[in-house]
Design a binder for these strands. Structure first.
Lengths: 223, 223
DNA sequence: GTGCCTGAGACGTCGGATGTCTTGCACGAC
DNA sequence: GTCGTGCAAGACATCCGACGTCTCAGGCAC
């Protein structure tokens, strides 16, 4: 194994074993390189790789630190990876989202706060009845993110956030080519929100499924 | 933005835009560095970071290539990230798995081949009635992976593969501390397999839920 | 035709030099 | 005494050039 890969594993080991805790500062590059037995150049490759996936946080002029290691932060790297997927796998991502999002919405039904419900309502009201496609899709993302956050599971939330990225483009195409898509989306959002307000997990789940399935069906028919 | 980060973005852009396709070979380091306007060292940091998440594949003495970009390959990086999570978030991972795995099992019910069913049967038979805990957990992983592969969604499959890692340890603890866990697991596996053979998606889903929920419940009670 | 050998090409690693940024401290004005 | 400015140290950012190691292809011997 290359020395850089060894260094990656060793740093990973230090964190997993607890020798380095979230927020801790690493020894300076030259020291750490000497400790691990490699050059500073090679060590930097390892550090850079770990910082790309949000394990380390390097601050020029200051030092290198272990991040909080929150699921949210680490799964952020997921969206970077997901960006690379080509359009022919969008359907698979969408299928996964169709599994997760209704479940998250159902979970949210029993946990969402009045405050959050009002915030979602305001958000939908503000959008009006005839938004642009871009506005609608942005609102769509925000709406679902708000609900999923209320599921209380940060891993689930981050995962959906990462998966939603690649389907965003698909939703924009749909809005541009399918005429009733906008009004249908608005209607479905209202229905989901109403179900949440009723604390009706089953209804919320069903509406969420319908909501995503309609995108999926459209996409499947156009590919 | 640092030159290395710029390089990462530029390489990413070349791939996403299609200028570089899966399997393509990159210009040699010195050339690419010159093209992108940075030193070879800095470029190498970018390449190393992208190879950690399986975007690039560097082969010493040969060259640097774009990987296949399969969902399977890219989500493999997920397990690397997941390794960093501390035990207090295992429950959240397990909750996500409890959503995905039953859904995947249900999908498999209508698609799984006779051949695959027989393979799973053999696998369970080979394990016998009194396996060691380690054997059981290894078999458990293999069993579920086989089923999820039959769901026909490679994104789903890779995602579950990545999520299953951190819960593995939990399952081992359980096997060691809860006496009837082994026999119960064996029984549940048989039940899932029987449901699949009957092409009964609903039953398969329910058994899969029960299967995971029992681990989850035990874990929740011991933390 | 087969197999070994060799050389070119490309990545792997290293050491050092210089630039840039952050931070903390000391000094001086108010 | 307090606040603000300026300097200096520490740490990361970037670069250059050199040498080691590995892979692969082509030539040569059998």
């Amino acid at each position: 194994m290359a020395v850089t890969d060894e260094a990656i594993e060793k740093i990973k080991g230090m964190i997993v074993s607890g020798a380095l805790r979230p927020g801790d500062r690493l020894p300076k590059e030259s020291e750490l390189a000497a400790d691990l037995g490699l050059s500073r150049n090679s060590l930097r490759e390892a550090v850079r790789a770990l910082s790309l996936i949000r394990i380390l946080d390097v601050r020029q002029g200051d030092g290198t630190y272990v991040t909080s290691l929150d699921p949210q932060l680490l799964l952020e790297a997921l969206s970077f990876v997901v960006d690379f997927h080509r359009d022919d796998t969008v359907l698979e991502f969408l299928a996964v989202r169709r599994i997760l999002e209704p479940a998250a919405t159902a979970m949210a039904a029993s946990r969402i706060s009045e405050q959050q419900l009002n915030a979602l309502t305001n958000q939908l009201d503000k959008l009006g009845n005839d938004p642009s496609v871009e506005e609608l899709v942005a609102c769509d993302l925000e709406f679902h993110r708000g609900i999923v956050q209320s599921s209380g599971n940060s891993v689930l939330c981050s995962l959906l956030d990462g998966l939603s990225g690649p389907t965003t483009r698909a939703r924009i195409w749909r809005g541009l080519t399918q005429e009733d898509a906008v009004s249908r989306t608005l209607h479905e959002h209202r229905a989901i929100l109403a179900a949440l307000r009723d604390r009706d997990a089953e209804a919320a789940k069903s509406w969420a499924t319908v909501h995503i399935a309609s995108v999926e069906q459209w996409l499947r028919s156009t590919l």
